[in-house]
């Protein structure tokens, strides 16, 4: 169960990394979607923000280690922390 595998095989988890533009960074795509939703008469729609979800299969059975690895991946590549924030969730 705690055996660590680095070869992409064996028991693992899925890391779900959600990347969103930071508050204060203009999201014209989100704004366009909000306009379209208003045009569809969803009057209750306020601010809309668009982001990305990246699912990564990890050959790592330990959830804490998987979380730490996915955070490092997000900092190094998946998110540009100048403009984006991210959230990591681990699924068994």
């Amino acid at each position: 169960m705690s055996e660590r595998r680095g070869d992409g095989e064996g028991p693992g988890v899925k890391a779900i990394v959600t990347v969103m533009l930071k508050d204060g960074v203009l999201d014209p795509q989100g704004r366009a979607i909000a306009h379209a939703l208003h045009a569809l008469e969803f009057a209750q729609v306020g601010d809309v923000r668009v982001g990305k979800v990246i699912e990564i299969e990890l050959a790592e059975a330990d959830a804490d280690r998987a979380h730490a690895a996915a955070e490092e991946m997000a900092r190094k590549l998946l998110a540009n922390t100048v403009i984006e924030g991210f959230r990591v969730r681990i699924e068994a």
Binding site: P28, Q29, V82, I83
Partner: peptide
């Protein structure tokens, strides 16, 4: 270089 290039404001 600092900063980032976002989607054009007019999309």
């Amino acid at each position: 270089l600092p900063g980032a290039l976002l989607r054009n404001a007019g999309l």
